[in-house]
Design a protein around this nucleic acid. Structure first.
Lengths: 224, 224
DNA sequence: CGTCGTCTTGATCTTTCTCAACCTGTGTGG
DNA sequence: CCACACAGGTTGAGAAAGATCAAGACGACG
């Protein structure tokens, strides 16, 4: 079902799942090109055009997201994992990828990756794209070092209402929103009350309506 | 590149990406079976055998993980997204899936999903499996409501050292670990010092060695 | 119309963040 | 080869944000 990733990294295309899928060894050629990166370097940066998909053969890479001009760590990727798959369904990278231990990564341009995947519309491709799409839209869980409760709530409301117009998060229970934002329901309640008093939102016991995006943006930026 | 998900949900297999990939309309049949679920119900529960892969056609589903016998919300899935893809590479579900608004979901047994994806070893399948594997091993970001800083650190050390033996998190900088655990570096430092004093770990400025898993488990469970 | 679950509000206490100083291992240049 | 500077980490004291506990209000539902 799941082969364990080699502890010391993948050293050859013959032992690499990507290489094998490209039938390296039976005359195939792998579209991915090996590169070495030192610790501290970036493979790509959030919001850059997503032009290359990466695969980690050795080493560790940190996926981070900028919050208040500081890097917040979302997860660690290591041997045998992809980076930048969002290229499949999104024009820009959604994270920054920072190498934290000398790494071998192979990269492939989006259109070559696309060709490598085979014809569009096949089940496996569709499943892959849907799976990636889900992670792209995903809002990572927030925690206090990401800013005060007020700021986290304001930011979350803004991202939630980017697509849907003003009627935020229909039907998600307060306790669940609170959990997602890394706070207890009481704190969320107080913060919403404050935002309502300042006129940024209108709140009932089960709905949150964004009235003033500008005010929310200010709240998301300002301290306290 | 990415078609926007229909706001009111997918109502027919003809307009469903899964149905289309199964060539419904050209004589194909979709292996997924529609089901309706009311708000509050569970599609599956964490650690159950992962036997069914789900696809959301309408409604919203919460993915949660148990921490200290409370549900911590990891993310929200809605129309057009998969649930339980971990079935591809993992014997059990890694989250619980709770329906929060009346939903239409279609489910398919793992082996049928497997067959639907097409022959193993094709690039798209390999990419899908690697992508899923990455999310399965991923440690979700922790936040204060998940317990005190001490408990979060203890839990994280335990999960990190499950596979690798005792030499935790080689080479990840303190500030990055702190960010991942939703605290500032100073707090992490203090917590590690406490754990070191109690003999659970040995700490240098750039390594953490787990000495006493039992002690860590106690710390992960106990308050303060 | 009454009960229950969920959310809100209030008062208090704890945790953890902040700011600052200090330490230590690493890398640099003389 | 050693001294020095620097980044990253640790430790300490104080302040503030948020957690907890408890009580009350609102809305949903039978």
């Amino acid at each position: 079902m799941s082969q364990a990733p080699p502890p010391d990294g993948i050293t050859s295309c013959f032992s690499c799942p990507i290489g094998q899928a490209a039938q390296v060894g039976q005359g195939g050629r792998c579209a991915f090109i090996d590169r070495h990166r030192e610790a501290g370097g970036y493979l790509y940066v959030e919001e850059e055009p997503a032009e290359v998909v990466w695969f980690v053969k050795r080493g560790q890479v940190l996926l981070t997201r900028a919050v208040d001009s500081t890097e917040v760590v979302r997860t660690v990727r290591s041997t045998g994992e992809f980076l930048g798959l969002e290229a499949l369904v999104h024009p820009t990278y959604i994270d920054s990828a920072r190498v934290i231990s000398a790494a071998t990564v192979c990269g492939v341009a989006r259109q070559h990756f696309d060709a490598w995947l085979g014809p569009p519309g096949t089940p496996a491709r569709v499943a892959l794209e849907q799976a990636v799409r889900a992670t792209v839209h995903e809002v990572p869980r927030a925690a206090p070092p990401d800013g005060s409760a007020l700021r986290r709530v304001a930011r979350w409301l803004l991202t939630q209402t980017e697509a849907e117009k003003e009627k935020a998060s229909a039907g998600v229970a307060r306790r669940d929103i609170a959990s997602l934002l890394g706070m207890v329901p009481e704190t969320l309640s107080r913060v919403l009350a404050r935002l309502a008093r300042s006129g940024a939102v209108e709140v009932t016991r089960r709905t949150i309506k964004v009235c003033d995006r500008a005010a929310l943006e200010t709240a998301a930026r300002r301290a306290a």
